[in-house]
Design a protein around this nucleic acid. Structure first.
Lengths: 224, 224
DNA sequence: TAATTACATACTGTATACAGTATGCAAAAA
DNA sequence: TTTTTGCATACTGTATACAGTATGTAATTA
């Protein structure tokens, strides 16, 4: 039962990383859960070797942790991590935007399209993917590829947190409005204002997530 | 020929990552080189499975890259990467120091000891390790663990560049003087000045590396 | 002589086998 | 009834086997 018998590009573990990350984000693999390699491997239709290579990569991404001789575990969501990461993005994202400069007309149109697509989308997982795409499109001209990749990495790392959040339409609408404000500044040709708005976006994006985590932690159980 | 037959903590690949990174830094594995897994595995006295897991991790660190069906390659040193990373550290390090606050007397003494140890050391590899240790000690109180880890990651990633540089005693002395200037500001209780000095340190640290790379690239061959 | 094709070799990517440790349960003793 | 100890089971970590692709060389043809 091979997944794909035409694999001209990429290895099995490449696709596995995306697949397993998605399972962690949508909580099919809930936080704290121990990964049973044999079970997961046969569930995914592959052997343990490429699976372990994928799990190893997800440790670097911060989605998993390993305890020697005990195995891989899904990392717990933590308020500390949110409080740490969002201020970093408040530093990195505006810097990336400043380095990128103003987007051209075509790029502006694409940003608008994405923002409207977010409005139309109802599936939380897709909303997050579109939101991330918007933020990446904003800095697509960034000449500093390391910053770009770093931001991309943090996006993947915070998807688990935003997944819980984006179930509420209120938070989605807020995000759309902030995007609009940034785009307004860009269309006015005011790059510093756009950077400032982006910085505030990141600083304020932290708060509702922390609140959600706190309310979640005060409950004992959760609905599946 | 086992490396250690008492491994109560940690897996083989944990130690392999450090070992192979060192081989890349000191150019036993030169840039661009294709990694022969069979050869390297038997050279290190282990099998290909844990080796491949270690190599996978070193891709995340930026030391290697993988081409499907071709294998792992040591990433080439690039001026672009240096130009990208040092401005990021000029952003992150001062922020981490600001969050850390002033070090206490004991910590100041440790910073002084490290700086003197750098002066006494002659081996480039050790100089870099001490320099990194100094910069980490500077921000050891940083409450933002993600920034701390990020800086640590960038240190490992830039060791290859600094190894070429630290062969010149001039550059070592410059580093020591800058450390001293930062410590002077700290002992005066002026945290903002220390952050500013650290920022300038990072911004200026980039230049000699780029110059070294340019002069190196204009030569055809190199001494072993 | 230069170019192209066919073949032998080597290496990667994946699966599987094996060894050693952790875990949970049952039985026995206090 | 509670605690402790021994054993069976399950799972991780590592080694090895196998399949398929890339690579280099030699032979053949233009």
């Amino acid at each position: 039962m091979q997944k794909l018998n035409f694999t001209p590009t990429g290895n099995l573990s490449d696709e596995l990383v995306d697949q397993i990350r998605t399972m962690i984000v949508d909580e099919r693999l809930p936080e704290g859960q121990r990964i049973n390699e044999v079970h997961l491997a046969e569930q995914l239709g592959i052997s343990r070797t490429p699976l372990r290579e994928a799990l190893t990569r997800l440790i670097s991404e911060g989605a998993l942790e390993a305890i020697p001789r005990r195995g891989f575990f899904v990392k717990a969501l933590s308020i500390e991590e949110v409080n740490d990461i969002y201020p970093i993005r408040a530093l990195l994202d505006p810097e990336a935007l400043a380095l990128s400069g103003l987007p051209n007309a075509e790029q502006m149109q694409y940003l608008n399209q994405l923002n409207q697509a977010i409005l139309a989308e109802t599936e939380p997982f897709n909303i997050i993917a579109l939101d991330d795409a918007w933020h990446l499109a904003l800095i697509q001209n960034c000449p500093n590829k390391v910053i770009f990749d770093l931001i991309h990495q943090f996006m993947l790392r915070t998807r688990r947190y935003e997944y819980g959040l984006m179930k509420s339409k209120d938070n989605v609408n807020t995000a759309i409005e902030i995007h609009q404000a940034i785009m307004d500044a860009l269309e006015a040709g005011d790059l510093p204002a756009a950077c400032q708005a982006l910085k505030e976006n990141m600083e304020h994006g932290r708060k509702p997530i922390v609140q959600w985590l706190q309310s979640r932690d005060s409950e004992t159980g959760g609905t599946s």
